[in-house]
Simulated scan of single mutants.
Amino acid sequence: MRKYVMMGVQGSGKGTQSELLCSDLDMVHIGVGDLFRWHVQNHTKLGAQVKRAMGAGALIGDDDVEAVVRGRLDQHDWNYGFVIDGFPRNARQAAFFMESYDIDAVIHLEIPDDEVRRRVLSRRLCPNCGMDYNLIADRPEVEGRCDICGHQLITRDDDTPEALDARLREYHQKTRPVLDLFRRKENVFDVDARPPADDVQAAIRKLLNLPAYQPG
């Protein structure tokens, strides 16, 4: 069983690399951001709190994050392991995670802030079917329209310049120190996240001594 944590600032490619890592290794990708977006889309009480926080570029409260993560991992559908991204984001969450779960490695995706801004501010979302687009590398066939359902694309509430700047500050102040905690007890691998996604995945697998990634 393999258990990994994927860390990096928003826009570093955590979700993409987690999906690629799970694609042929029978692991489950647990995207904490996706779990919270589900609550928002389904108008739960937690979803309303999350929407307010996301709009302000703030992080979700520790109690809510830990409860959602624990609930997801308690489903035990990850017989061959998991890759979790978007968690932990501060020292308290890291302590909770290390006390509750054994992990094999932390993958840290490194990327400059200016590249984060370029990537994040180019993202678009279909509010109808949930399809994600990026105007840099994955543009829709018809400008501003979803390829799947034709709905008009939007910018996510947390992808404004103001919200992004707030998240970057939070990351550097609270999340980067988590890496120092992990380095004391866990294997932490730093990976340059600027190259194409397939190249980043190949580098991750080499560091983890996993079977080579075969694109496509």
Rank of each mutant, 00 (worst) to 15 (best):
E186W: 02
F87M: 12
R194L: 12
L181F: 10
W78Q: 06
A212E: 00
T155S: 12
D147Q: 04
E115I: 11
Y80V: 12
L135K: 09
H151K: 05
D138I: 01
E115T: 14
M1K: 12
A95T: 15
L20Y: 15
M27D: 08
L121W: 00
D85G: 09
A212T: 10
A166H: 15
D190W: 00
A53D: 06
D180S: 12
C126N: 03
E143N: 07
I84H: 10
W78A: 15
I107K: 03
E66Y: 08
N90T: 13
F82G: 01
F87A: 04
D157P: 07
D198K: 14
V28I: 06
D85Y: 03
G13V: 05
D138V: 04
L207F: 01
R2A: 13
Q41W: 01
H29I: 10
D190L: 14
K206Q: 15
K174C: 11
A203V: 12
L59M: 08
L153G: 08
R139L: 10
K3N: 05
V40R: 08
S12W: 07
S12T: 00
E115S: 10
D63H: 05
E170N: 07
G15M: 07
G130M: 09
D77S: 13
K14G: 07
K45W: 14
A197W: 07
T155K: 02
A197H: 09
V142A: 08
T160E: 05
L121E: 08
G130S: 08
I84Q: 04
I148K: 09
M27E: 05
E66T: 15
R123N: 05
P211E: 00
C146Q: 01
G31P: 01
G15N: 11
L46V: 06
V83T: 14
A212V: 09
L208Y: 06
N128D: 12
F87L: 11
E141F: 15
V9T: 10
S100V: 05
T44K: 08
G81V: 01
F82L: 03
R123W: 07
G130D: 00
R184T: 06
L46W: 01
A56D: 01
A58W: 11
I111F: 04
R52N: 15
D62W: 00
D26S: 14
A163T: 05
I84E: 13
I107D: 02
L20D: 06
A94W: 01
E170R: 15
Q93S: 03
G15W: 03
C146E: 04
D63S: 07
F189E: 07
G71N: 11
G130K: 06
E19W: 04
